[in-house]
Design a binder for these strands. Structure first.
Lengths: 246, 246
DNA sequence: CGGATGGTTGAGTCACATCAACTAAAGTGG
DNA sequence: CCACTTTAGTTGATGTGACTCAACCATCCG
């Protein structure tokens, strides 16, 4: 029930690719510390497994994701961990109207992030018309993410949930890349996916297998960080998403 | 699976209390039409069962709830209906950064609403410091609502979900009333609660019964619109919320 | 009184969570 | 470069419990 509490799986600090990007990385392990100077709009490279914002921290910055994928997680009062989503390039992280960050954000892959001070954000929203449209777009995207999550969780089986998740992931990556070859990058672990879908990790694995043996998807090999799968039959994947078995 | 689609239960247009408040009510059945003139900050009384905002409509107004309880619902692309929450006095409805309302809002009880034009909202956010704090508070409250919903849906049984829901309802009403007598108003149907918790209506009923027979709650009689229950043992309700059976 | 809506209860089935053991792969350190 | 450890993922067996279908009350409204 609260097995997630027993294994917080906090920052699994990989150091595999890090040697390649050592000079680009600001800090190596654990929580990423943002330099206080030159914080405004300076894009920085961050290693995988870095905690960008901490739950409960003061929300003084918003981060625009230039590239890479992040993971949003939250620890509830009773100790369970919830995965809230996997924002990627083009989205923003840290947007909140409250007095503190409600969730933690952690890089799943190497990422390029642009920090923006909250003050600057308010200035831009009031002033520059174009910048405001940009901000509202990010806020809207976040709204959409949450809505999609709720829609997934109100589905009643692992198969519809996973299928919907994969399709959504495909759509997002397709929009980002401009083309659609049916390949879906999954930089997150299956454990994270399971938590996001509110199913058991074993069930997630079994459902994946079912999709594989039914020739709906094709599982690739490990891709440095995470897996990569390919959609073989989008029709059936879409039908699985709404609960029709054949 | 999609039984909600078969019975959209759209606007169940009650006319019970309406005779009492007939002169206060602007429109009787179906979708509530807001007068175009005097829209700014004029509190209006609305009957129960009125649709305040429609999904897909242009989000030109935000509604501050002075009194009463509303229901937020959404119809997904594949026809399922999702209940997103039950905002009450002190909260705001219709806040969105996108080009259209994502969900419909309907009054569950008689309500007093203050509409505010979006333009006026932007003006206030940029200008008046105090008004901005108010708006940010509403946005934050909405964030909190969604987070709580996600936290509930990531719980894995009907009992924890229902218990959490009841405790949250109690907390909200307690804060609003200033005192806590353990009484919880439930203006929504059990069908709505079940949809909100993503469980079957029968399961919702059975779980309620279990709480009743275990002397955790006491069920009152029908209260005009909806039921009213009382918490007899908050300890056990709280323990049920995190999944401990004893 | 009849219709409609919301709620309750019963029986049965299926499937998800759980526990457990195991493989695969990658990081760690000598 | 090879043992050791750790983590992610896979598979099997099992019991329970939530959904489903169905019929039945209870209220409220005409």
């Amino acid at each position: 029930m609260s097995d997630m509490a027993k294994k917080p799986q906090s920052g699994h600090i990989p150091s595999g690719q890090m040697t390649l990007f050592e000079e680009l990385i600001d800090e190596a392990g654990g929580v990423f510390h943002w330099p206080d100077h030159r914080y405004d709009r300076t894009i920085r490279n961050v290693a995988a497994g870095q905690v960008i914002v901490r739950q409960g921290g003061a929300p003084d910055r918003v981060f625009e994701i230039i590239s890479g994928t992040l993971k949003l997680s939250q620890v509830t009062e009773d100790g369970r961990q919830i995965i809230l989503g996997f924002p990627a390039a083009g989205e923003a992280v840290g947007l909140t109207a409250g007095p503190e960050y409600r969730y933690a954000a952690e890089t799943l892959t190497i990422a390029r992030l642009r920090p923006v001070l909250r003050k600057a954000m308010y200035r831009q929203i009031s002033g520059d018309r174009q910048a405001r449209a940009q901000w509202l777009g990010w806020i809207d995207a976040r709204e959409q993410m949450v809505q999609d999550h709720l829609a997934i969780l109100s589905l009643n089986g692992p198969l519809p949930r996973l299928a919907t998740f994969l399709l959504a992931q495909n759509t997002r990556q397709m929009k980002r890349a401009g083309r659609d070859d049916g390949v879906i990058d999954l930089p997150m672990t299956q454990r994270d996916i399971a938590s996001y879908l509110a199913i058991a990790p074993e069930t997630c694995s079994r459902t994946m297998k079912k999709l594989r043996t039914d020739a709906v998807i094709e599982a690739g090999v490990r891709n440095g960080d995470g897996r990569r799968i390919k959609i073989l039959n989008r029709e059936r994947l879409a039908r699985a998403a709404i609960g029709s078995s054949p």
